[in-house]
Design a protein around this nucleic acid. Sequence first.
DNA 1: GTTTATGCAAATTCTTTGCAATACT
DNA 2: AGTATTGCAAAGAATTTGCATAAAC
Lengths: 132, 132
Amino acid sequence: MDKKIKRERSSATKTHILSILEEKKQALAHKDIQLLLDNSVDRVTIYRALDRLVDEGKIHKVTGMEGIVQYAICHNCNKEEHHHNHIHFHCVQCETISCIENVEPKFKLPDGYTVENVQCMVSGVCKNCNSL
Amino acid sequence: MDKKIKRERSSATKTHILSILEEKKQALAHKDIQLLLDNSVDRVTIYRALDRLVDEGKIHKVTGMEGIVQYAICHNCNKEEHHHNHIHFHCVQCETISCIENVEPKFKLPDGYTVENVQCMVSGVCKNCNSL
DNA sequence: GTTTATGCAAATTCTTTGCAATACT
DNA sequence: AGTATTGCAAAGAATTTGCATAAAC
């Protein structure tokens, strides 16, 4: 029940994953990351590195429309506070998921409900694909 | 690539699943449904019945915060048109997911984006639990 | 009688766990 | 030295596929 006191440590896998996510500027699934790592890193190692990055507030999990789990860079988070109420956009043409930073959905629930967290997935055609 | 021409047919499993979902008034996972069917129906049969019900526009899939797939009754859908832009509410106390009908999230995406579909998961405490 | 639904076995995919070896600080 | 990371093997959960039998229309 007690929190594991784990010091953050750099690791080849974590660094590499982060730079991939930075470069692609979109959410990627475990599978994609493994491929982009040239299959040179063990599946399990990738799972664990992703978990640690999530714990450290560096990336966050996004579950796509079809239930596929993906990971994206966190821009406004740290280990203590997470802010993922922004919209995730799934482009049906280029099949990518990306974060629309600074756009939060507004809504009014019926009386009696208390809101803690919001996850919003919007699908459609992204800026890039629309301008082709 | 061609659509399977399947006539809709009644079946014990489909009917039973529908009445369970109607009665519970919340989204249920495959697992829950199997249990509520007293484990008397084969896992695979349930998966297939759920798929068919989704195709027929009778129920829709909801993927919860933690990636658990659940199914809920459709109130405004048919085989041709689906309207699931309403909010799905996940209560962290009673651990249920339910549809908040008629509440759609509003947001404004940057120029260039075209919206086709919206899926919004809100977690918090539901009306029932808040009034206890 | 033709098509769809069911049950069983088996295969796939995704994810997690245990453990020994290695790397980081 | 002490703790976190890695790789491998193996287990576990969720979902899908194939095929023969049963049921619906």
